[in-house]
Design a binder for these strands. Structure first.
Lengths: 218, 218
DNA sequence: TAGGAATGGGACCAAATAGTCCAGACAATC
DNA sequence: GATTGTCTGGACTATTTGGTCCCATTCCTA
């Protein structure tokens, strides 16, 4: 999961560059299609066609559909964490959080709230269907929350946040607001509920600032 | 949607009590199965077996699977709104909100966070697949939020909430926290994140109380 | 109570979809 | 450059699953 090569294959003996590229192409196509249509509503033929591969390649690189889905869970998790790490690992101020919020809102507004969060949608679809996938997703959420809570810890250590602020709980709340916001925005096909939800969570964090700034939520 | 008869059939000429009962049995089974396995992963044969009916009955009462799913969206929506109306229509105090929160948390903890909210899971699964279902779900969410915001309006009118509190935004934030909490709880198979999320939203609302009470969030 | 409409049972069909297989191209190692 | 294992194309199979159909039974109404 914390691998540099995002589409890292499982241990196999000899592996060629061409094989890796094919595997990556399959995952990339699965990622794209399943984000839009959902996991269960996407067929292997869809993926085969979109990835310009053949049946034998799908089954050469993945034992079955379930294993492909599990690989996708890791693939997508790695992508999200990579993106989030870039935006959060230097978080040291409240305005940094606001910039992070704005980036997410802007990205989501590009498609009018549709599709939601790739992790969240998989979580709801797979959690009661594939225990291994659920477990991976749960770990990814935990890692994501840790990126946030680490930033909040830095803010608390530097005196920006009050000592009684609980970075872990604040991070969980923010993540829930984000995921719930994605969900409502997706249902409404409108990014507005996501903004409201994130602003609520940020206000909550702001209430723990040592010297509450004005109202610069956006 | 606001019908007393939850499984109200569409207009047909003659309709017998037995027919209504069958239709209800089908919807009840679909509701149960699709909550656990998801919509797309539940087959008509599953429903037929669980509802003790036959293929001809399924297709007598519903044109196809899509229409059954749409009927289920309304059915489930009516159930949720009925339940929520009972818990929210007399909401007039902050402690009433806490009781509401506790009831939801307790219900969800009974299955260790599994399954999540029937509306939320359908929303993520269907929003990008069936525009009509998405639209219905969006309306149901709006009605649900209105039950909350109406309560907050009453609290504001009676002087409990400050005048600058925005009941609609507070309700949206609370709903997002609830849905995100359901999602994280489902992924973690642990109700804790849902509690944290709801408490965040309630703290946020509490910050708008005219005379903030102690810390009676739970 | 007779006729017709609604309801029900379940075999059957067709399409979709996951999964298999094998011959051959390609790549790496000696 | 021979040999061995990887990778690929694509036809083929088996199964699942949504959907149809026909006939029997039950129910309502005239």
């Amino acid at each position: 999961m914390s691998d540099e090569q995002v589409a890292a294959p499982t241990n196999r003996r000899r592996i060629s560059q061409r094989g890796i590229a094919t595997r990556e192409r399959i995952l990339e196509a699965a990622n794209r299609l399943m984000l839009v249509r959902g996991v269960n509503a996407t067929t292997l033929d869809d993926i085969r066609e979109a990835s310009q591969t053949s049946k034998s390649q799908l089954y050469h690189h993945f034992a079955d559909k379930q294993e492909l889905v599990r690989a996708l869970v890791n693939y997508r998790g790695a992508l999200v964490l990579q993106r989030e790490r870039a935006g959060l690992e230097r978080l040291r101020s409240f305005s940094g959080l606001i910039r992070w919020r704005n980036a997410l809102v802007q990205a989501n507004s590009l498609n009018n709230g549709k599709y939601g969060c790739g992790l969240g949608s998989m979580a709801l679809e797979l959690s009661d269907q594939d225990e291994q996938a659920r477990s991976s997703l749960s770990e990814t959420f935990a890692a994501w929350e840790k990126l946030i809570s680490d930033g909040l810890h830095r803010m608390r250590d530097s005196g920006l946040l009050r000592q009684d602020a609980d970075p872990e709980k604040l991070a969980t709340g923010l993540m829930a607001a984000l995921q719930g916001g994605y969900l409502l925005a997706n249902a409404a096909h409108d990014v507005a509920p996501m903004e409201v939800a994130l602003d609520m969570a940020l206000e909550h964090i702001r209430s723990f600032l040592v010297q509450p700034a004005g109202e610069p939520t956006r």
